[in-house]
């Protein structure tokens, strides 16, 4: 179970970074760390001790390969994570051009 617990600690570091830090780039980095931890957790949950990679060969049977379904799901999630990072960085660059800072407490032109 120590793998699951270490994965949980990694996710907690990302959550701390998102909630506590006040720099936009740090928040994007925290979201990235959370995404890494979630992807790794999926693959860890599908691992088998005696398993091989899920590719057919002559002596390959159902029970001696790792679970391929979480890998297919995570393959989709990785690409969507790239799209998320791209969009967040584009919005932050625009905010930097307008306000001249990445600090989220200084971005207060909307305050009444």
């Amino acid at each position: 179970m120590s793998e699951y617990l270490l994965c949980l600690i990694l996710f907690s570091i990302g959550l701390y970074c998102v909630v506590r830090k006040r720099n936009l780039i740090k928040i994007i980095i925290g979201i990235g760390i959370m995404e890494y931890a979630a992807n790794l957790f999926f693959v860890l949950a599908g691992y088998r001790k005696t398993g091989r990679s899920p590719i057919f060969s002559a002596d390959q049977q159902v029970l001696n390969m790792v679970d391929p379904l979480p890998q297919a799901v995570v393959l989709t999630a990785i690409v969507i994570g790239l799209a998320l990072t791209l969009l967040l960085v584009a919005v932050s660059i625009k905010i930097y051009e307008k306000y001249g800072t990445f600090d989220i407490t200084k971005i207060n032109k909307l305050k009444g």
């Binding site: 780039i25 994007i28 980095i29 990235g32 992807n39 693959v43 860890l44 691992y47 398993g51 091989r52 990679s53 899920p54 390969m65 790792v66 890998q71 995570v74 393959l75 990785i78 690409v79 994570g81 790239l82 990072t85 791209l86 960085v89 932050s92 660059i93």
Partner: peptide, 26 residues
């Protein structure tokens, strides 16, 4: 190590791309 070679390749490519994007931002 967890026997997922497709994911390893995809993660490498995506990591390099997102690193370039983040360096462009910072």
């Amino acid at each position: 190590i967890l026997k997922a070679p497709d994911l390893a390749m995809m993660q490498l490519v995506v990591e390099i791309l997102s690193l370039i994007i983040l360096i462009r931002a910072t």
